[in-house]
Amino acid sequence: MTYKAILNGKTLKGETTTEAVDAATAEKVFKQYANDNGVDGEWTYDDATKTFTVTE
């Protein structure tokens, strides 16, 4: 399944996708990606669109 992350960081804005077996696995991948890029904020998840959003 393909999951998407939308990054609304102070220094990084954009989107990325990952293939994962479930939302929990995708969330770990996206949170690591955000952390590696200095983005730390509030996370939300929309199951209907399989989209995570982080906003700083």
Rank of each mutant, 00 (worst) to 15 (best):
M1G: 12
M1A: 13
M1N: 13
M1K: 12
M1L: 12
M1Q: 14
T2D: 04
T2E: 08
T2G: 05
T2Q: 10
Y3A: 03
Y3G: 02
Y3E: 03
Y3W: 06
Y3Q: 03
K4M: 07
K4N: 05
K4D: 03
K4Y: 13
A5D: 03
A5I: 15
A5E: 04
A5C: 15
A5N: 03
I6F: 07
I6K: 05
I6C: 07
I6G: 02
I6N: 05
I6E: 04
I6D: 03
I6Y: 07
L7A: 02
L7H: 03
L7G: 02
L7F: 15
N8M: 12
G9A: 07
G9F: 14
G9V: 09
G9H: 06
G9T: 15
G9Q: 04
K10W: 11
K10N: 10
K10P: 09
K10R: 13
T11G: 11
T11W: 13
T11E: 09
T11P: 04
T11A: 10
T11Y: 14
T11N: 13
L12T: 10
L12Q: 07
K13R: 12
K13C: 14
K13Q: 12
K13I: 10
K13L: 07
K13M: 09
K13T: 09
G14N: 07
G14I: 15
G14S: 12
G14K: 13
G14P: 03
E15R: 07
E15T: 13
E15A: 09
E15D: 05
E15Y: 14
T16E: 05
T16V: 15
T17L: 09
T17D: 05
T17H: 10
T17R: 08
T17E: 09
T17A: 08
T17S: 11
T17K: 08
T18G: 02
T18V: 14
T18L: 11
E19L: 14
E19N: 13
E19I: 15
E19F: 15
E19C: 14
E19V: 15
A20H: 03
A20Q: 06
V21E: 11
V21W: 12
V21T: 11
V21S: 11
D22A: 04
D22R: 02
D22K: 01
D22E: 04
D22P: 01
A23H: 08
A23S: 10
A23F: 12
A24C: 13
A24R: 11
A24I: 11
A24W: 10
T25V: 08
T25H: 12
T25M: 11
T25Q: 12
T25K: 06
T25W: 07
A26H: 01
A26K: 01
A26M: 00
A26R: 01
A26Y: 00
A26N: 01
E27G: 08
E27F: 15
E27D: 04
E27S: 07
K28L: 12
K28N: 08
K28Y: 09
K28F: 08
K28V: 09
V29L: 10
V29C: 08
V29M: 09
V29Y: 15
V29N: 06
V29Q: 07
F30Q: 00
F30N: 00
F30K: 00
F30P: 00
F30Y: 01
F30V: 01
F30W: 01
F30C: 01
K31N: 03
K31I: 07
K31T: 05
K31F: 06
K31P: 00
K31E: 03
K31G: 02
Q32H: 06
Q32M: 10
Q32G: 06
Q32N: 07
Q32K: 14
Q32P: 01
Q32L: 09
Y33N: 02
Y33T: 03
Y33G: 00
Y33L: 08
A34K: 01
A34P: 00
A34I: 05
A34N: 01
N35C: 14
N35K: 15
N35E: 14
N35M: 15
N35H: 14
N35R: 15
D36C: 09
D36W: 08
D36K: 09
D36A: 13
D36L: 12
N37R: 14
N37P: 01
N37M: 15
N37S: 08
N37V: 14
N37T: 06
N37W: 14
G38K: 07
G38S: 06
G38E: 06
G38L: 06
G38R: 06
G38T: 03
V39F: 14
V39M: 11
D40S: 13
D40W: 14
D40K: 13
G41C: 04
G41K: 01
G41F: 05
G41V: 03
G41P: 02
G41I: 03
E42S: 10
E42V: 14
E42T: 13
E42L: 12
E42W: 12
E42M: 12
W43Y: 02
W43K: 00
T44Q: 08
T44R: 08
T44C: 09
T44I: 09
T44A: 09
T44V: 11
T44W: 07
Y45W: 04
D46Y: 05
D46M: 04
D46W: 03
D46V: 05
D46I: 04
D47W: 09
D47P: 14
D47V: 10
A48Q: 10
A48Y: 10
A48D: 11
T49V: 05
T49W: 04
T49G: 04
T49P: 00
T49E: 05
K50E: 01
K50G: 05
K50T: 03
K50Q: 09
K50S: 05
T51H: 01
T51W: 01
T51Y: 02
T51C: 04
F52H: 00
F52K: 00
F52E: 00
F52V: 00
F52N: 00
F52I: 00
T53D: 01
T53P: 00
T53H: 08
T53S: 06
T53R: 06
V54E: 00
V54D: 00
V54H: 04
T55S: 09
T55K: 06
T55M: 07
T55P: 01
T55W: 10
E56L: 07
E56T: 07
E56I: 08
